[in-house]
Simulated assay, not measured.
Amino acid sequence: MASACLVSGYAEPARAAAPACETAPSDSFWRAPVDTLPVHPDSARYVSSIGSDAPLHPDFGSGLVDGRPIGIPVTVSDTAVPESRVTFDVPEESDPSGYRIPSGARIENGPASDGDRHVVVWDRGPCKSYELYDAEPRGGNTWHAGSGAVFDLRSNELRPDGWTSADAAGLAILPGLVRHDEAASGRIDHAIRVTVPRSDQSYVWPARHQAGAAADPSLPPMGLRLRLKSSVNTSKLEPQAKAVADALKTYGAIVADNGSAWFISGEENAAWDNDQLAALKGFKGSDFEAVDTSGLGRSPDSGAVAPR
């Protein structure tokens, strides 16, 4: 697969062929179109609080910015590797075991980064994603992280209510990343992870956790779905940017963490065309609206959507 790096330092035979491993089930909230759902009654307040004039920003691309790679790297593993030992700053809300992290797994913004330092491993045999926040390798197949989670990518089960993950909203990161292979195909069929400067001390389905700056109903809650308005013209965009913009119209973006306004997340990949992606910065907050997804979920503890 061209979109991510395959790394493994463990000399075992490759796993037997397994069913294809997608990043989310077909009935997951990640894959649910929201282009026909109603506008949220508080949409104008949410957009204003995020920044009506702030530009959309693809937080991924090729090459380096300030000497660091751009985006969240996805380490793809197709071989069985030993389970890693991981300790946490927040063990009470982190999965304690089950992480099989290949030797050489990449860290967001590089190994010397002082940022979020996410590690995302797409283990395609058992179809799981191992995700760490503020990850530090300690040698000998041992890691330390702020928090972490193991996601079964074939399941719609959400994390326990109130638990974080490697993301403030308690959601998986991998399914919400824009990947180069899907953008190159011309179709991104899922919602995209987005950050906001300040969030409310609340969360809405499918989020399971909040990291709010204040109890302020004008601020977006974790889990809020935002979409690019249908009236926005995307026809003149080049292919990579158009695929992203069309996904934002159809599937929207999910508020998953605090950060810069309208920063959407994608994988680090040398094949991105930064000139194409730069055109996305021509959109701004006022081109978006919040979506009322109150009738989308099947049950509070499942990420599956109700039949429509």
Rank of each mutant, 00 (worst) to 15 (best):
A191P: 06
A191F: 03
I192S: 02
I192N: 01
I192L: 09
I192T: 12
R193L: 12
R193E: 07
V194G: 04
V194R: 02
T195M: 14
V196I: 14
P197C: 07
R198A: 12
R198K: 12
S199G: 14
S199P: 07
S199M: 08
S199L: 06
S199F: 05
S199Q: 09
S199D: 09
D200W: 08
D200L: 06
D200M: 05
Q201E: 14
Q201S: 13
Q201M: 13
Q201N: 13
Q201I: 11
S202W: 04
Y203V: 08
Y203D: 06
Y203M: 10
Y203T: 07
Y203Q: 10
V204G: 02
V204L: 01
V204H: 02
V204P: 00
V204E: 02
V204W: 00
V204F: 00
W205P: 10
W205D: 09
W205S: 11
W205G: 09
W205L: 11
W205H: 15
P206L: 06
P206I: 08
A207R: 02
R208P: 00
R208H: 00
R208M: 01
H209G: 03
H209L: 03
H209V: 04
H209A: 10
H209E: 03
Q210A: 12
Q210S: 13
Q210D: 13
Q210I: 06
A211M: 12
G212F: 08
G212I: 06
G212M: 08
G212E: 03
G212S: 08
A213F: 13
A213N: 13
A213M: 06
A213Q: 10
A213K: 12
A213R: 13
A214S: 15
A215D: 15
A215N: 15
D216Y: 07
D216F: 07
D216I: 06
P217Y: 10
P217T: 08
S218L: 11
S218P: 08
S218D: 15
L219M: 05
L219N: 00
L219R: 01
L219K: 01
L219T: 01
P220S: 11
P220M: 14
P220W: 09
P221A: 06
P221K: 04
P221Y: 05
P221I: 04
P221L: 06
M222S: 02
M222L: 11
M222R: 02
M222E: 00
M222C: 03
M222T: 02
G223L: 01
G223S: 03
G223K: 00
G223Y: 02
G223Q: 00
L224I: 04
L224R: 12
L224N: 05
L224S: 05
R225V: 13
R225S: 11
R225E: 08
R225F: 15
L226T: 09
L226F: 15
L226H: 11
L226K: 07
L226S: 07
L226Y: 13
L226Q: 09
R227G: 10
R227S: 09
R227F: 12
L228H: 05
L228C: 04
L228E: 05
L228K: 03
